[in-house]
C-alpha cells in the first residue's frame, strides 16, 4: 500500500570518504546547509576523507589536476593532463580554488567544521580508517565528537525522515 503523505527531511547522515578539496567541500556544504535548515546533521569521515578533520592535513587539501576531465584552464579551454603532472601545478590550482571559494564567503575547512558544530551538527571519524592511518583522537580537530564504528554510525541514522548521503 502506498500513501501520498509528505515526510519532511528530519535528519541527514553524510559520509565523506575522499580528501580532495571538491569532495570535502561537497560534504561540508551539504552538512552546513542542512544545519542551517534546522535538519539534524551527522557527518562521518572515513578513508582519505579523514584528512579534512586531521589537524595536520585539514589546511593543506588539494584538488587533483590529473584524470579530471572537467578541469578547465581559466577561460574555459581544456586543461591538458600532462600539464597537471608538472611540479607546482596542483598546488597552484588548489590555491586558486581556495581563493575562489573565499571570495564567495566559503570558510576554510577548520572554520567550516566549527560552523557545523555551532549549529548542533555532529562530526565523527571512522574507527577502522583511523586505525589504518594510525590516527588518534588528539590528531583530529576538536570539533570531532568521537571515533566510531560503521555500526555506531548506522545506529545514529535511525528514524523516519532520515537520509544517508554518500558524497
Amino acid at each position: 500500500m502506498t500513501t501520498n503523505e509528505d515526510y519532511p527531511l528530519k535528519k541527514v547522515c553524510i559520509i565523506c570518504a575522499k580528501g580532495s578539496i571538491e569532495d570535502v567541500y561537497a560534504s561540508l556544504i551539504m552538512a552546513n546547509g542542512a544545519v542551517m535548515e534546522g535538519i539534524e546533521t551527522k557527518v562521518f569521515f572515513t578513508f582519505f576523507g579523514l584528512d579534512a578533520i586531521t589537524k595536520k592535513q585539514m589546511k593543506k587539501l588539494h584538488t587533483g589536476t590529473i584524470g579530471n576531465p572537467a578541469m578547465r584552464m581559466p577561460g574555459g579551454l581544456p586543461f591538458p593532463t600532462i600539464l597537471g603532472m608538472l611540479p607546482g601545478v596542483e598546488a597552484g590550482v588548489s590555491a586558486m580554488m581556495k581563493k575562489q571559494m573565499a571570495d564567495l564567503d566559503i570558510p576554510p575547512v577548520d572554520e567550516f567544521l566549527e560552523m557545523i558544530t555551532a549549529g548542533g551538527g555532529e562530526i565523527y571519524a571512522c574507527k577502522l580508517a583511523a586505525e589504518m592511518f594510525k590516527l588518534k583522537k588528539k590528531d583530529f580537530s576538536d570539533e570531532v565528537s568521537d571515533i566510531i564504528t560503521v555500526g555506531d554510525f548506522y545506529a545514529m541514522c535511525n528514524g523516519q525522515g532520515t537520509q544517508i548521503i554518500f558524497t
Binding site: 535548515e37 534546522g38 564567503d105 560552523m115 555551532a118
Partner: peptide, 29 residues
C-alpha cells in the same frame, strides 16, 4: 550584500552558536 551565517557570526554582535540560540532551528531564515 550577500547575507550568510558566517557574516552574522563575524558581525561582532553574536557568534554563530549564539545566533542559533537566538533564532533556533533555521536561524538565517
Amino acid at each position: 550584500e550577500t547575507l550568510t551565517i558566517r557574516a552574522v557570526g563575524k558581525s561582532g554582535i553574536v557568534n554563530i552558536k549564539e545566533f542559533y540560540q537566538l533564532f533556533p532551528g533555521a536561524p538565517l531564515k
